[in-house]
Design a protein around this nucleic acid. Sequence first.
DNA 1: CATGAATGAGGGTTCATTCAT
DNA 2: CATGAATGAACCCTCATTCAT
Lengths: 245, 245, 245, 245
Amino acid sequence: MPPVRTSSPAGASPARPRKQDHRARVGAARREKTRLLLLESAMLVFARRGVEASVIDEVIGTAGMSRGTFYNYFRSNEELLAAVARAVSDEMLRIVDPVALVHADPAARVATGVRSMLAVARTHPHLAAFMVRGGIAALGTQGLAVEALARDVAAGMDAGRFSRMHPRLAFDVVAGSVLAGMHTLLTAKAPRDYPEELAGTLLRALGVANATAQRLANLPLARALVPPESLLARAEARAARAGAR
Amino acid sequence: MPPVRTSSPAGASPARPRKQDHRARVGAARREKTRLLLLESAMLVFARRGVEASVIDEVIGTAGMSRGTFYNYFRSNEELLAAVARAVSDEMLRIVDPVALVHADPAARVATGVRSMLAVARTHPHLAAFMVRGGIAALGTQGLAVEALARDVAAGMDAGRFSRMHPRLAFDVVAGSVLAGMHTLLTAKAPRDYPEELAGTLLRALGVANATAQRLANLPLARALVPPESLLARAEARAARAGAR
Amino acid sequence: MPPVRTSSPAGASPARPRKQDHRARVGAARREKTRLLLLESAMLVFARRGVEASVIDEVIGTAGMSRGTFYNYFRSNEELLAAVARAVSDEMLRIVDPVALVHADPAARVATGVRSMLAVARTHPHLAAFMVRGGIAALGTQGLAVEALARDVAAGMDAGRFSRMHPRLAFDVVAGSVLAGMHTLLTAKAPRDYPEELAGTLLRALGVANATAQRLANLPLARALVPPESLLARAEARAARAGAR
Amino acid sequence: MPPVRTSSPAGASPARPRKQDHRARVGAARREKTRLLLLESAMLVFARRGVEASVIDEVIGTAGMSRGTFYNYFRSNEELLAAVARAVSDEMLRIVDPVALVHADPAARVATGVRSMLAVARTHPHLAAFMVRGGIAALGTQGLAVEALARDVAAGMDAGRFSRMHPRLAFDVVAGSVLAGMHTLLTAKAPRDYPEELAGTLLRALGVANATAQRLANLPLARALVPPESLLARAEARAARAGAR
DNA sequence: CATGAATGAGGGTTCATTCAT
DNA sequence: CATGAATGAACCCTCATTCAT
């Protein structure tokens, strides 16, 4: 029987002998660690070689484990890609959203979110590469971060901060520009304040007056907190180690 | 010796025997036709399966010719992709630029260019799919169309129509948004005037006042002329035929 | 990660769980068996079709295994050829040299070695075919057997049994003649005592007096022992089976 | 109708109008020239890449003519190889035999033939490479030169200059050694008098007393005459030109 | 006869996936 | 659960040969 493939800690059977409990807990923890190691390796490989590349050999090589083990965790290539995309998107939100939510003003939120995202992209180039490689098509299907943007844009229009526009269009402009911006950060020498410029430009696009846009794009920005145990942090750390060697 | 791989019609040696001349002319014409057929088929396949897909089999299937012939024209997969990208980019420019150049005002040009591009994308969904699949990374390296945009943006800033901004940033916002917009046109039900809305939004992003942006985004738009012998027209026609069957 | 490509049995980590040990041992054994099967099949195919032939399909067909497995063991055609050549050369030496080393006299050694080699070629026609196909150029680079010959020739010259001559010339005459002799044994009706005649002739070439040469070329000859598990024996047996069917 | 494929000057229709005659003669001459050019190019390619290599593209490239023309002269790859082998063998004989026939003594003839052959190999490395590439198996089937050797060996045995031995064995020793010797001349630094040493050694092998062998192997040697229009001379000249560039 | 575009069988190589241990 | 050998479909690419011009 193939092992269950879940990311949730395997719905612990409540009550029952301690022994079992303990074993189950240890097992689940190990599973989770292995899974994370695979996701982390996969992100690096996708970032380096593109999301359509042949990947499994390199992933298990990077993770230092065997083929068989890989298939204990993911049924296929695509399942892996989906899982990585999902995990990255979720983490991105968990990291960036708190920074944006500092502000009540939707315009400030959008500007801050954009800047924070680019800041993370700058410190985590492999994450950025992964997202750029995936492209717009990939982004469109990856829920959470998208919803946060939709939320802020809708609130901004309701509050009269933004011009009325088709919500999808707002998303296209912001997401498309941010993705292109990440690409620029990765491959070209962008000015230090590129994120602020981009944020301001996008606010203008959304209908915010130029002066206001400038101001909102230059509010103090809390440093995005990337938990050291997160996929992103671990992947980047590992890449650094590999690069150093 | 395999046949030469050129797109140029092999500068005919002037004068001398009709026989030679005639043969050369016929040969060159046939070569050109075959090459075009391959490019056309390749665009369709890339659009359907992504630019990183392994493709040759499908291309020759679509083009209805043999493996060997393919390799008489392109040394490899990448060479093919490069050639298609180049050809598409060039045609795009030849089609869209005349429409934009109707106007002297750089802002009008940008708006018209954006709208015209989206219009072509709408009537040529396979072209759009091809560009979206390629993503920003592909666009960045494909000269001509990019240069036209750069030209207009620079002129606009010099003329004071646009805010001063890093040229690359302007490119990122416009190109990223247009690409995302194409994706939307392809996959979602976008409002009729999506292209005009997007054009207006991008003018605002570039620093044009809202009212002016609205007006410039709704100037009368000449219908983009897609020559029936162009790669784009032929590919789309062929796709239609295939779909009908 | 593809399986490692080694012929060594992967030095077992001593001590520790039986499980591991056992698994490792079984795995290594299986690997070794597969590798041998491939080498064996390859030798037959090279013998039949020449060492420059494209061969992999036939090799895996003969070995009865899949394309993928082949590439788990050899990176390419040439790597395979090199491995076979090496293995054959080594086995040849292991089989023939003991027979020659029975004698202390270098001249007796050379004569006995030549005869023994031809005897093996007679009983193992596929081996002979393989060597003839490879030709002098192949032999020249394949160490061990060559060194044994060099050793005996040098000793013979030092002991005054052979005329002084350029060592390479001695090698050329002996190796070239033996190869040609193998070809004759394979394709023409050679007299029973062809090996003895050839050995005697070569001794004369090396400077041994005619009478002595005759005598040394007709010493009692120990039967060359071809271990039943050797590449040679297995290949020949398999060829016999295939021919019978 | 495919053109006739002959090397003979197309059995001229005797008598008849001058016009015809003249045209036929010119045509036949042109045919012969083209054919020679192809043979010449083929020899170079075979020498460089081995007789089993894929060859036609390179041959027509070297000869500077088209695929179609090639097939007007040779029905296939093998036909080409056979023709080259045949032509080379014949020329070899025409060049070397006159030098050997200076002597009446069969032993002197053999020694002189061997030396002369190696001399030609030295001055015509591409010829040597071609022969070494072909190997013993190729030599065995290539008549003329072989017959000359057989003739001299038989005469020598009849005259009591050589020991009695199986004729095939004599051929194996001489041909095998000469081929190996050519390989040495091509790839290793052989002493100046390698040909004389080899000739002497082979005479000893055939049963000639050492002192006599030495003497016969050092008779004055007429310079082999390689006609400038021969395949060999032309090929070598062309190779030199190509190398210089 | 010469030309060279087109052909397609033949061989090489990769890589996601399975499965016995 | 982990391991890694085996699998084979899917690609890639070459090159001898044909044939319309």
